[in-house]
Design a binder for these strands. Structure first.
Lengths: 229, 229
DNA sequence: AATTAGATCTCGACT
DNA sequence: AGTCGAGGTCTAATT
């Protein structure tokens, strides 16, 4: 990885055109040839960048009036996207061998939440039983199909964050499931770590029960010895 | 901006939990306190990060058996998100004053395309007139509502890249607009710089006309003196 | 503050 | 290879 701190001007042309006026920025050139231009603030997103696969060519300015000490042109190999970096003053330029990264390990995503809830359907109520996970319907699988203590079918939609589109999705599933005489009547449960007020209102209005799930507590129930990493 | 190249191990706990095993990585600390951890590949997205506002505290490892030379804890000020970076070996550590960035200037976005097409509806055909931009419907505004040379109403949906969901959106608008006896029959035009084959097929199947727009040419028509930056 | 829609979205899974 | 959905989405405009 090459790290350059330089006064530069950047132009991107591709899916859109974007321009960065002359200023001091960090230019990161990764081992795969990708280039990132960062300012000293903002978000984790670079101001400008080129994704791999791409190639970097260094040249001198065409125009003698151009004060640039170097012009970097980064071209995408797949598309005709192009990033032109005019470098006016180099403050820092180092190269580092980072080696291969073992990569990120994630925990806590929706799939794991579904897994935990499937193994602990009594979270929704005593006497609940799981019919199956990913119960198929013509428009896609329902996260969980259960029977409550009274033997009634319940479709459960699980989200990390419960928003309005999740309620819409569950509503569509319920409409289809209720056409099946073996299941009908099927009611709905909307389960999420956090449910937005608007989503809760819509769900309640449609007779859907909202359940906020404590992920850590649930993981504790599932296996009290489980600890992070 | 502080640039550190170090052998490190990273743990994030917040909306999810994520872990990075020990390896050499770039750690970027921006002026606003935000922290980015990059590997020598992948995309512009860091492996792990903390968005501002947040604070960084440096400590020594609690456990004597921990070989770490330093432990950085980055805490979000707003949420209880936390990033813990255990540093085992520092390869590089420099600080740079970048100053304030003038910021990115974009050109070529959908809004500008809509503006240009509104001013040049004859792009779609001779004799076309604009009824109005952002013509309201109960499910949101249609980009352009026009009348063609024969006086028939035409709804125009504009996208930078025409994909299938854009055709679906236009279809919903057309269904609503055609309920209005003052407008009906209303036909549709799907305009984009680039239209995906699947979107084109669906549009054609529904009697929607596809128009690919040359943004640069259109800008030239609108004002021949206009040049980028 | 909350909501909506776009993003050079990115990223992964699945077909 | 294309399509679909989720994201620690982020971001900005709008209500």
């Amino acid at each position: 990885m090459r790290i350059v701190i330089a006064r530069c001007q950047v132009d991107y042309a591709g899916r859109l055109s974007a321009h960065l006026a002359e200023a001091v920025r960090l230019i990161m050139v990764k081992a795969d040839g990708s280039v990132l231009v960062h300012s000293d603030g903002g978000s984790y997103k670079p101001l400008n960048w080129m994704s791999p696969p791409c190639s970097l060519t260094v040249s001198e300015p065409d125009d003698d009036s151009d004060r640039a000490v170097a012009v970097w042109t980064v071209r995408s190999t797949k598309t005709d996207d192009q990033l032109v970096i005019r470098i006016y003053e180099v403050h820092h330029d180092t190269e580092h061998d980072l080696g291969v990264d073992p990569g990120l390990v994630k925990d806590g995503v929706e799939a794991h939440l579904q897994e935990l809830l499937a193994a602990n359907v009594e979270t929704f109520g005593a006497g609940w039983r799981l019919i199956r996970r990913e119960y198929p319907t013509p428009i896609g699988p329902v996260d969980l199909l259960c029977r409550d203590d009274g033997g009634s079918a319940v479709a459960v939609e699980i989200k990390r964050r419960g928003e309005i589109d999740g309620v819409e999705q569950l509503t569509r599933y319920l409409e289809l499931l209720n056409r099946d005489p073996h299941l009908s009547p099927v009611r709905g449960v909307f389960a999420a770590q956090e449910i937005k007020p608007q989503a809760r209102t819509l769900a309640t209005d449609r007779g859907i029960t909202c359940v906020t799930v404590d992920y850590d507590a649930l993981r504790g129930i599932d296996d009290p010895t489980t600890r992070l990493f």
